[in-house]
Write a protein that binds this DNA or RNA. Structure first.
Lengths: 116, 116
DNA sequence: GGGTCATTTCAAGAATTATCGAAACATGGA
DNA sequence: TCCATGTTTCGATAATTCTTGAAATGACCC
């Protein structure tokens, strides 16, 4: 991941409405949520939300597809993995155990017996 | 980690000069680097860099201490761990293995035999 | 086609953030 | 004390981003 791309992704999440929307999409899983429902849940005017959602799409963190009249947005989990991976590398340069928080989240790769 | 704090930390890293400076500080380790040296390395005017460094300090990602005439900045690894942990939780809600990239970085907690 | 719902685009203004040069501040040494 | 060095603060400007309401687009149903 290049620095520029990382800056874009970080900037996309560095805004309250967008971060909250993204968390909502992550919770919703691959099925995603319609734009209107996000707007209602977050109590954000639709044009405003549309602006922020397209920022997330532009940053590659979210995908969109049309379903009838609705537009469904969904988190791109691979992109998030890439971003977290980038940050991890910039946090500890590969020294094992430098991200102890990950133990609590359970998000790290499954432990393999004997591997250090 | 509250959403607001996460937004602050993300915003701090969502700028090229700051992200580059932070990577430099991570590479330098706990000993840190003097402000002037960072400015020279990044070829950024000192007042400009000072502005960005204080943004990183304000976000809690970096610490500063004076050493004679110089001010030494150092990455706060705990803060970075907290941020990555926050993102991880917002990425996969605790489902194991949702951040495969971490396997490559080697940053995740050491695997424990038998633990899944 | 006409009507309605869901969403986006547009244009303008407000707010925030970044950059720059000049000046101020702090430290150490002559 | 005076000077030199390293860094920050100040003030102004430039650039970017956010918000808002109005209008446009796209899809469905009659």
């Amino acid at each position: 991941m290049e620095t520029n791309h990382a800056v874009d992704a970080l900037a996309a999440l560095a805004q309250e409405t967008r971060l909250t929307a993204f968390r909502l999409l992550v919770e919703a899983g691959p099925e995603g949520i319609a734009a209107g429902e996000i707007a209602r849940t977050l109590d954000v005017p639709p044009p405003n939300l549309s602006f922020h959602l397209s920022a997330l799409v532009h940053a590659g963190l979210v995908t969109s597809r049309r379903d009838g009249r609705q537009v469904i947005y969904a988190a791109d989990f691979d992109a998030m993995d890439t971003l977290v991976g980038f940050l991890a590398q910039n946090c500890c340069r590969g020294e094992g155990g430098c991200l102890p928080s990950l133990e609590r989240t359970g998000c790290a790769p499954k432990a393999r017996a004997g591997k250090a």
